[in-house]
Every structure is written in structure tokens, then in C-alpha cells.
Design a protein around this nucleic acid. Structure first.
Lengths: 191, 191
DNA sequence: ACCTGAACACCGTTCAAGT
DNA sequence: ACCTGAACACCGTTCAAGT
């Protein structure tokens, strides 16, 4: 898969594409180091472009976060495929929730940004999460049909629950083992 | 109970006390309207003092939040007394967790601030939460002894769980009924 | 068509000068 | 002892001027 273009329509001019790619690359590093709330001016500066150029490509911070998250989302898409084909719906849902929680911890303050994005129509970050909620919905349905979770649990509840745990464990600076433990505790009530 | 003084030691000069009280009053309103991340300059301005005066009384935002939360904390202290004396440890813990979650939703972004305060030694906001964690600890112990919750659950886990739910329901703009439902779901695993 | 960077508004924070 | 408000640094955002 090649590098992303700004829209699905026409290719960018070569210099614009180069800037776009550099911005995403630098942003990805900056978010990983200092969280998604880090200065956009600083990202533009490190990418060697003016602030206006960054804003042209990414009118909102959400869009830049979504772009920086690209690779991580591709990995989850792969997991999604294998889990929806699994013959153990309970274990598949568990594995999925853990992967989801880990993904939400990719950058500091990412759970906040994603939760906020869900309140905005057409947020690029929200759109980039669509495959995640879709997979959650599918796996929840399969688990219900298999009778391993309660029938009054919505996939949105589960997504919110997993986001919450990711948020809390990030705020506390939890290890992966702690995250796993908290997730089991928080989702124990769905059975 | 009179109005708070800056330290437990000596009373403030009359004009300083007046400023202190006005700042807390204005901050309380501003936090309620626009969340705890609202501009401190704006609070100082509305209270009719210079920014330096606000900083003198409250060197950190946390301190101002803690002061603004005073009344709400007093109410919880009352509930704490009656619940720790209850003869139904399971129901008492449930009631407490709900009250805690509602308290954490007092201001927008309060769960974030409190979670952050727990990473700082001597944060005034953390100190103001001490009675809350204490009560949680007591009620969790009583519930364990009564055999209504699992023995491998820590009171810190529960506090984190309740904070998480408060955070998520605030981000989603949930109603009180939604909060109650999510809380039941998230804490179902402790039994 | 895209980029640059100056410019503006806003906010947190400090501190010298005042009373 | 406390207050004031100017000053500074930083950040998001816009836009006129360039190529």
C-alpha cells in the first residue's frame, strides 16, 4: 500500500505530497513522544513547513491524528479479519477488546480525542474509527448469538467501556498487565 | 462552618479574604459553565482582581478546583457517614459508587484533573480527594467481609473504575440514567 | 495550485512597582 | 502583607504576498 493522499479524488502535486508525508511522519513521532495535545506549530517547524501548510492539509488536529494513526489501524484491520472468522466468539471478543484498548493507548490523550470525535459529525478521526466500531458490533453480535454475553449490552457500551479503561490506565501509567487486569474487571459484568 | 482560609494556620487580611472568596465563587460558576479548563485570566477578571492575585492564592489550577469543590465534598462526607454505618454493605457500596461518579461529573473535565492530581504528590486536589478514597476503602473492606465482592479487588481499582465511567459518560453527554446503567455494567465484574 | 511567514488573539505565568 | 497590571512566552489560526 502506497502513502495516503489528502482526498480520495486526485493525486497531489509532488511538492505537496512530500510536505504531506513529512508532516504525518513528524506528527506521528511527536504524538508518540508528547501526546496528541502537542504543539502543531512545533510539528510544522520540525517538518520544515510553515503553519499555514500544516493547516491547509489538516484543518483540524483530529485529521492529523487520524493520518498519523494510519499504520496502527491497518494492523487492527488484519486482526479484525482473523477474529471475525474465529470459532470461539467469546475469546474473539476478549482478544478484540484488548487490542482495541492497546490501540487507544497508542498516544497520550488519544482516548479523549476519540471520545470527543464521536460527538462531531464528519470528524476524520471518527471516520477512521468506523472499522473499529464495525468490528466491535460484529463480534458483540456473534458473542450474543453464542450466548456468552448478555443480550442487553450494546456494542457502543462496550466501545465506551474499553475506551474508559484505556483512558484510566493511561492516566495511571499502567503496564500492559495492569491494563489487561482492569479490562477483565471492567468487562466482567457483560457476561 | 465559615469560609475557607488559604492555609490552616493564620487568618487572612480582610481584603485578601474578600478576594479569595470572590475568586472561589466566580471559579465555581465558571467551572460549572465551561469546565475546569476554562481561562484563569477570565476568572480573575470576573472576580475583579489581577491575574497575579489569583496566582498568589492558587499557584496551581488544581488548588482552585479543590477550593471550588468544597461544598460538594461536604455533602459527600455526610453520605459517607451514613453509608459506613449501614447494615447492607453491598447496597452501601453501590450507593457510594454512584454518588462518587456523580460528584466526578460536577464539572466538565474534572475526572481528567483528578486522575492527573493522583500522579502528583501534595496536589491540593489530590488531598481534597483523600476522604473519598478513604471511604471507598472502608466500604470495599466491609463488602469483602460480607462476601458480596471478590477479594482480589482493590479500592484503588474501584476508584479508577468509577472515574472511568464518570469520564466516559461525561464525554458522551450521558443522562443520569445512562450513568447509572454504565456504572452497573462496569462494576458488574467485581462480584 | 500550493507555500510562506507575518500578524492577531488568547492564555498562562512572572515580577517590578505600588499601597 | 497584599495587590496591580504590564510584560513575556507560547500557541492556534488566518491571510496577503509570493512562486
Amino acid at each position: 500500500m502506497g502513502t495516503a493522499t489528502a482526498t480520495a479524488s486526485r493525486p497531489m502535486r509532488a511538492d505537496a505530497q512530500r510536505n504531506y508525508d513529512r508532516i504525518v511522519q513528524v506528527a506521528s513521532d511527536a504524538f508518540a513522544e508528547r501526546g496528541v495535545l502537542t504543539s502543531l506549530d512545533d510539528i510544522a517547524c520540525r517538518a520544515g513547513v510553515g503553519p499555514g501548510t500544516l493547516y491547509r492539509h489538516f484543518p483540524t488536529r483530529d485529521g492529523l491524528i487520524a493520518a498519523a494513526l494510519g499504520g496502527s489501524l491497518d494492523k487492527l484491520a488484519g486482526l479484525s479479519e482473523s477474529l471475525t472468522a474465529s470459532d470461539d466468539p467469546g475469546a474473539a471478543l476478549d482478544d478484540w477488546m484488548l487490542a482495541l484498548a492497546e490501540h487507544l493507548r497508542t498516544y497520550d490523550n488519544l482516548p479523549e480525542s476519540i471520545a470527543e470525535a464521536f460527538r462531531v459529525d464528519d470528524s476524520p478521526l471518527r471516520n477512521s474509527c468506523r472499522p473499529l466500531t464495525n468490528t466491535t458490533s460484529v463480534l458483540v453480535d456473534r458473542a450474543k448469538k453464542a450466548g456468552v454475553i448478555r443480550h442487553d449490552v450494546d456494542y457502543r457500551d462496550l466501545f465506551a467501556l474499553v475506551s474508559s479503561v484505556a483512558w484510566a490506565s493511561q492516566r495511571r501509567g499502567d503496564s500492559d498487565a495492569d491494563l489487561k487486569r482492569m479490562l477483565a474487571l471492567a468487562t466482567g459484568g457483560i457476561r
